[in-house]
Structure formats: C-alpha cells, structure tokens
Design a protein around this nucleic acid. Sequence first.
DNA 1: AAGAGGCCCTGATAGC
DNA 2: TGCTATCAGGGCCTCT
Length: 286
Amino acid sequence: MPELPEVEIIKKSLKKNVLFKKIDNVLIKNRNLRFKIQRNIKKFLIGKKITNITRRSKYLIVHFEQDCFLIFHFGMSGTLHLIRNKNIHQTNLSFYNSKTLPKKHNHVELFFSNFKLIYNDPRRFGYLKFIFSFNELNFFFNNMGPEPLDSNFNFNYLKKKLKGKKKNIKNLLLDQKFVSGLGNIYVNEILFYSKINPHLKGKKIDDFKIKKIIKYSNEVVEKAIKKGGSTIRDFKNSKGEMGLFQNEFKVYNRENRNCVRKKCSGKIERVIISNRSTFLCKYCQK
DNA sequence: AAGAGGCCCTGATAGC
DNA sequence: TGCTATCAGGGCCTCT
C-alpha cells in the first residue's frame, strides 16, 4: 500500500489515538513476514508506554519510554487496524472499523486498555522490528537518502548524485538510497509533471530538469498528503478510509487514455521498466 | 561496483 | 462455474 504520503497519514491518525497509551498484551498470530518477527518481541513490548509516533521514509516508528522503538514497514499490502472495544466504530482516516477488518492475515495484535491495534499483511512483504536504542535506530536509517521534502534533497545533491549515472531516472527515483519515500505511483507522476522520459539516464538530466524534479517531487508529495494519500485497490468495501489522491493521477493507471495536457494529442502508454509498470506520455516526456 | 532481473507472497480481476 | 494468466502501492539478493 504505502509510499511516504500514505505512511504519513497513518502516522497522523495513529498519533491521535494511541499516544501515551500502554501496551497491556501482545498476540503474535503469525511471525512470518518479510523477516520473521523477533521471537521475544512480546516480552519487550508488554508494559511499554508509547511516547511518540514518527515516520522516516516509508517506515512508521513507534517510540517508547527508555529509548526503544517499534518500526513498521508495510510492504505492498500491510495495513493497521484500530479496533475499539464494545463495537465502538472509529471512522478515522487510515483505520478500518471492525466490520471491515479482514479475517485472514492478521499477524500481530497489540492490546491497549480499551482498543487493540492489528497489523494485517496478506502478501507478507512488510515487517516489524523492535529496536533497542537511539544508536540502533540511527544505524537502521543510516544509508537512506533524503526525503523529497527534506532540504537536503536540493539542486547540489541531485547534481552530484546524477553525475555519470547510467541508471535511468525512474529507477534512480525508486532507489531509496538516492531519495527515500517515493514508490511506483509517485515516481510516475513526478516524471510526468517534470516532462522527463522515465528511460532517460541519470547523467543526461540537465540543470533545468533537475529543478523540475525537485519542484514536482515536493508538489506531488505535499498534495498527496493533503489529499489523504492514494487508495487503489485494497478493501473496497471499507468506508471513510479512502485517500483521495488517486483522483489526481495524471498518468498512473491511465493506460490508453488521453494525455491531460491541453495542447497534447498523445495517449498514455504503459511500459515495463525493471519489472514495474511505468506510465508515460511520449509526446510530453522527453 | 553499479545495474538489471528474479523472487518473495496472496488476492483481485479479466478472459476463455 | 471454474480454470489460467496477469497484475499489484516494495525491496532484498544474486548474478554479471
């Protein structure tokens, strides 16, 4: 599901609901995720009070007292569900009420005094990890590139990083060491706005295009957060959960439809780059 | 050493 | 209805 904007939305609504709450109990129903859940994680979590909820890139970070942390990565299909006791339905962005809670693939349940938080992940590409110190946390994120909205993601940084790069710009923007937080949807959109062909090699990106990339990375990500993220396919029946940014897509999922630029007569094409769907207008994106 | 591709997994949907 | 094929918001690992 989530790229940076979606995780940001999850962070915000989680913060409203679970800040300063204490974990009473933990149920591990299935340890098999991308990485196996640590065997003794239950022992570490029980009795801990949540002191903050933050995000780095596509990772959600739950902070506890005494400098320990629980990191969530949602992979392609990971979701969090807040379930109130006694059927009180919470219609809060990015949470599902108990009616829409999937029955299968609930991997972890965290119990609080009057609600529980469930991590569900059918494809198991996500994972969670308990972190024991600030040092370990910093180390974990050490190799990650700046985020699109970070001031370090600037002209000089891109200029330097793109120099001599044979990799195409699409794969570069998907590379979390290059810039972190973007995924397939937002990279497609950013390249369309920037009028850059996804196949263009890094070293061929001139100064003008670098500025475009920065400008539209910022705009697309900011707007997506404002709109509550993108909801494409999961849990169609759920209500009150949907992000709205999918209505703003200019190229993603728009194969064979007309280019939205007024003077352009092109059609959106779908091609494959490194096994991922790539949407572009060949007339606009050079 | 950088870059391309395979692969991990389940579920939804389209086409026959 | 039921089969098969294809596709999906990610990223680690291996091979060249």
